[in-house]
Design a protein around this nucleic acid. Sequence first.
DNA 1: ATAGACTTTTAGCCGACACTAAAAAATAAT
DNA 2: ATTATTTTTTAGTGTCGGCTAAAAGTCTAT
Lengths: 220, 220
Amino acid sequence: MMQLTHAEENYLKAIYQLSEAGKKGVSTNDISAEMKTKPASVSDMLRKLGEKEVIEYRKYYGVHITEEGKKFALRTIRKQRLWEVFLVEKLRFAWDEVAEVADELEHVQSTILIQRLDEYLGFPKFDPHGDPIPDEYGDVRSRPRLPINEIDINGTGQIVAVKDSSAAFLRYLDKVGAYIGARIKVLEKVEFDGSIEILVDNKKTIFMSKDVAANILVMV
Amino acid sequence: MMQLTHAEENYLKAIYQLSEAGKKGVSTNDISAEMKTKPASVSDMLRKLGEKEVIEYRKYYGVHITEEGKKFALRTIRKQRLWEVFLVEKLRFAWDEVAEVADELEHVQSTILIQRLDEYLGFPKFDPHGDPIPDEYGDVRSRPRLPINEIDINGTGQIVAVKDSSAAFLRYLDKVGAYIGARIKVLEKVEFDGSIEILVDNKKTIFMSKDVAANILVMV
DNA sequence: ATAGACTTTTAGCCGACACTAAAAAATAAT
DNA sequence: ATTATTTTTTAGTGTCGGCTAAAAGTCTAT
């Protein structure tokens, strides 16, 4: 089995996630923004990933991930998200603190480690941000998810993810009392500005603007 | 605070442990054997570690670790041993499976991660091999430890470490029913060959040769 | 259809960390 | 004390992954 370096793993994960988001080929600039490296470095890496046949690379025309590449990317994502669950559930990290540390942990090479960790965590299907954790074979079970602003009045659900997971936004949510896992009910939608009133865990009502509501995904 | 690379951290740890073992300066060849690299690579690394003042390096005359260097080495050892505890106690790894994985985990950079892990594990003072875990300040509390063959007849204690931690030896111990943490009592010492009979956990007696006994450390 | 803007790639450089081959220093043996 | 042996260092190479500067390709607007 061919091996990828840490850097290659990171690029491949970024490429996978960018292509999932947009469903199109991914540009060098997009990748360089995501990876915080220069476009020149990206070009070089794309050449290498192309040689390893985890991406299809046509110079100047962006990149498509191959089936083989997806397998690698999903393995990395699986590791990252399992570590995130560990950090939040076992070590009491806050949502917005896990990314950096999980990015290091995900590169530890040990199949057995990941199997045991998965088992230890009770085979979680979703990470603390509500994103699905691929299984050993790369299969992802996704649940139907809607942004709050698309839920009908009196509709209920559970917060499972946020689109914008910036530290600032996550802190805002904590502050107003919303959190991943919270059960919510939509009480009112204001016509003229789209702002919304929701009930959290049957005990607290909070208002949010349409923009905020659009950022919060709920499993209905 | 000056930073060390992963490779530098590994070399420094090796140098610290070699100098603790022998209490003398450490030779280039010793280090290259320990690190499984060539002496030429070691020389180069020593020059770098010398520049960073974590070791005192006189060409051709071996190496002494500085106080600053000890701090770094102890931090790395602390991380390594905490991860070993995690792997064995939480993920049910066997003694002889932890080294490789812990060597990767120990390089994850996050002070808070180590603090939380320490707390989560209940502030363990010894790793699964019985070696002491330095605290945040690098202090090590060591316990008096004796090899089994130096314990008097009817003396009791608890197995806390092994000198030879090769996979083969660890498997042998598991097989005969001895393990780290086991409470033992010395029942008999055979005069002419020094072999020893011990009682494990008050329920099982096992025989071992003098050589095996000398390899097992007991806290009395 | 061509100029200008933007994107992407190439070329060349650098630091980290391994290696080999050969030189230099220290140590051991006669 | 000189030679032989071993240890250690230097010199030069290669790979990986970043960078800058400049060239090349693509796209857009007139």
